[in-house]
Design a protein around this nucleic acid. Structure first.
Lengths: 349, 349
DNA sequence: CTGAAAGCGCTTACAG
DNA sequence: CTGAAAGCGCTTACAG
């Protein structure tokens, strides 16, 4: 509960100054690489820094300079490989830029998210990258964070004036649908996700666009909701076949749903890739090794992380610009199998 | 490259003190929950804190008190779900204890690890949880970190006097081997990993113990090295069948290797679970959905993360105790399939 | 119960 | 080119 006493005997600027007979000011100038210092003096100081094994206390410097070298990264679910990769990308770019990542994971809990942000704010982050927990309330978050700290929202839209980085959900679902259309499918379902999530709405929109462009109208019973987990998806499989004629293919909300659907199909004696075609979204690692391997929409989460870091850093140096919405590209990753089945002959609607 | 100027107008203790006509000292006492303050005064101060939307500056307080509320988490590979789960567990427990996680990922690079640690140290962590990059040099790390900051090493042994939390690798491999023995296998390989890693050595030892206990002596050609990745493992599959009689089963260094081997087998016209039995190690999420599902050794990385956090926090309050080695339990996770094949009849060696 | 004063480790005008 | 002094936002004996 309580922070911890540092071991005694930290070496400070004063120790270095004494050690080589200059003032603290001079040592500080050396540390910050000022060209004002005489080269001989600099050498003496640097030798002394090494000799005493000096460690810069960035917190003290930041306090004095009224700056911050930390960026908070609030992640809804680190155990999801998509977000883990994202976090790795963020950390990579922040480190390169000389910032440290202050991590907070919320486990998709709005309460924990509130607590985590509160704690992180006390550490005075220069900015925040926020991948909101499901069900987040933009206004409430805004009230908590205030206007002093720039925020970049990732992935899930929030009703705020913060910067927003999102995947091109619409385009992704469109690509997935077009791919199935090219294989001859006509009765294509959109399977999984919750209608009230912005990403689900956008993906459905892309699906609908592609269908419409092909002269098709999605039947209401082809739009099937379920929580974006493997288990729920497996359980909802039956809904696909509730009415005849049933779909021959499905664009899935994400890979987890797609994998669940594949399981659900085989539990009903069907085989994905043989008598039903499936395409996912996200390209999680499992997609490569599932049976059959899953064609899906690749979003390169690590690159998204790097991008998020760049965006927040940019914002830090440009506080007063208008909020920005950035849409990150996605691409179709075809893997022979989950989608190889074509529509049954004579099935052109 | 440079840290960032905070927006102007941070509300400080002084503002609050002025706002309700008390001294900064009194406000500070209120913040820290001192019982000395008159209850009426406390209420006034608290109202003012709320009114002005005060945010505590923990950095300043820590500086004055000579304490730290951050713990550094240095992770070799966040994109590995095992470590991502571990990180989630660490963060969860640290947050509960009122600490913030300072994240640094090294991507298995010893150079980056050095740089990352350097940067983290400047942020004055109370302690460090270090999951070392492959090839780390204990002495070099020790020289860098010094003796002021307690370190808990996770997963890979390092030649230092730091605390160490490891998986029970020996026991895990023993369980895996015994499981295959129970299925009737006699020619069992140990597949994958690098002999110079401590975890690989320990797992091989567990394998050997189980074999010996069953009166069997592993042939040298049953010990096959390869990098612990899916790709390398697939590539090394042939080595299993280089000499007759070939093994009928393999204990794999980890799940990635096991999945690679499964691919490698099917590329050679063999089917894991039908004519060759495979057991993994780690129980990564893919193990559940691979084809066939993978029997493996579950290590519960999230619980390990929580455990690591507890250990380092304990150490912070007990700096002078002797270094501790903690071995975390593992268990066999049987999944019908990858191991269901029994040894061919008449094959009892 | 409350306030004045010193100080954590650093930086930065300002003199010299 | 270098040093003395003030100050970042907080805490903590110490008086009163």
């Amino acid at each position: 509960m309580k922070p911890t006493r540092a071991a005694p005997g930290r070496v400070t600027l004063t120790d270095i100054a004494k050690g080589c007979g200059v003032s603290r000011a001079t040592v500080s100038l050396v540390l910050r690489g000022s060209p004002l210092v005489n080269v001989r003096t600099r050498e003496r100081v640097e030798a002394e820094l090494k000799r005493q094994n000096y460690v810069y206390h960035r917190g003290a410097a930041n306090l004095r300079r009224k700056v911050s070298s930390g960026v908070a990264l609030v992640i809804n679910d680190l155990s999801n490989p998509f977000f883990a990769e994202f976090a790795a990308g963020v950390d990579e770019s922040l480190a390169t830029a000389g910032y440290v990542t202050l991590l907070g994971s919320t486990g998709e809990s709005v309460e924990r998210q509130q607590a985590v942000l509160n704690s992180l704010l006390e550490h005075d982050p220069a900015g925040i990258i926020l991948s909101p927990a499901e069900g987040s309330d933009g206004a409430r978050l805004h009230a908590l964070v205030g206007t002093r700290t720039p925020v970049l929202v990732f992935n899930r839209e929030l009703d705020t004036d913060w910067d927003f980085l999102s995947l091109d959900n619409r385009r992704g679902a469109q690509l997935a649908t077009e791919h199935l259309l090219e294989r001859g499918h006509r009765r294509i379902a959109f399977f999984g996700g919750h209608r009230d999530s912005s990403s689900c709405r956008e993906r459905r929109e892309g699906y609908r666009l592609a269908m419409t462009a092909a002269g098709l109208t999605p039947e209401p019973q082809w739009l099937i909701e379920c929580a974006p987990t493997r288990l729920e998806a497996a359980g909802q499989t039956g809904a696909l076949f509730a009415r005849d004629p049933a779909p021959t293919a499905a664009v899935c909300y994400n890979d987890a749903v797609a994998l669940g659907l594949i399981n659900g199909l085989s539990a009903r004696g069907r085989r994905a890739g043989h008598d039903f075609a499936v395409v996912g979204f996200d390209d999680i690692p499992e997609a490569q090794v599932s049976a059959p391997p899953l064609s899906t929409i690749a979003v390169d989460p690590r690159a998204r992380g790097r991008q998020a870091a760049e965006l927040i850093l940019q914002r830090l140096h440009n506080t007063d610009a208008a909020p920005e919405r950035t849409v990150a590209p996605v691409r179709l990753q075809v893997r022979a199998s989950s989608d190889t089945v074509s529509a049954p002959p004579g099935d052109a609607a």
